[in-house]
Computed example of a mutant assay.
Amino acid sequence: MKIKNVGGVIVGLALLLFLAELVPAADKAMYNVLAVMSYGPDYEFVQEVRHGIASALSDTCRIEYVYLDTKKNIAGGPQKAKAAFELFQTLRPDGVIAADDNAQSMFVVPYLKDKVKTPVMLCGVNADLEKYGYPAPNVSGILERLHIAETIAFARQLVPSIETVNGISTRR
């Protein structure tokens, strides 16, 4: 999967929505966030998402990462997702970030969607939301699309006061 200029904008918008979900828990000094990545830490997309998460949340959140590593071992994904849920139960995070489609199908849908009140922010999802039974009361996020127009339109539905969107690319 190749993401050029859209990745940083998608992650930024998703994290803004995620932060809005955490506002009611403002009395805590640090929030616990569980980030479940479909792929391993060596993939560029995962590194971009981690960078976006860290830049937006590292001052206020303790972030625990889990890698399903389904790009290299799709068959092992469900077992790693089960382990991620066990960590979720131990950590009791204030929020979850689930990156890419396999994190949805193997982790969010079987363990979190409609089962917990913890807010889940998705990012990097390519499939239509209906595939995962979204929308769900505790799941929100931004879909990955090659064109930014759909993401901006969705953001404007959520926050009608948005008038301007800027993007910066570090790629050549």
Rank of each mutant, 00 (worst) to 15 (best):
Y31Q: 13
L87I: 07
L143M: 14
A25F: 06
A14G: 03
Y132C: 13
V66F: 01
D114E: 14
Y31L: 13
M30G: 10
A127Y: 11
A103N: 08
K2R: 10
K82E: 11
I168N: 09
V125N: 00
Y43P: 01
D114N: 15
N73P: 04
V108S: 03
I162K: 09
D128Q: 13
S58H: 10
N138W: 03
A56Q: 08
S169L: 11
I152M: 06
N126G: 09
A99T: 01
D100N: 07
D128R: 12
N102V: 06
N5F: 09
A56Y: 03
Q157V: 04
K113W: 07
C61R: 05
P41Y: 05
S58P: 03
T90C: 08
T164E: 15
K72A: 14
G7R: 02
S105T: 12
I3Y: 02
L112F: 08
A54V: 09
L129W: 14
I10Y: 01
A127H: 14
V36D: 02
I152E: 08
A20H: 05
G124M: 08
Y132E: 11
K115H: 12
P135F: 09
L112W: 01
D114T: 12
D27M: 08
M1F: 08
S58W: 05
Y132T: 13
Y134I: 10
P160A: 07
R172I: 14
T60Q: 09
S161P: 06
T164A: 12
F154V: 08
D101C: 10
E130R: 08
V109R: 14
T90P: 11
L146F: 06
I142F: 09
T170M: 15
V66I: 10
V139N: 10
A20C: 06
K117T: 15
I97T: 06
R145C: 08
V109Q: 15
G95D: 07
N102M: 11
A26H: 09
F85C: 04
V116L: 05
L68W: 04
T60H: 02
L34E: 09
V33H: 03
A127P: 04
M121K: 03
D128E: 15
P93R: 01
G8E: 14
A14W: 00
Q47K: 10
C123D: 07
M1Y: 03
I97C: 01
L146Q: 10
E150V: 02
F45E: 00
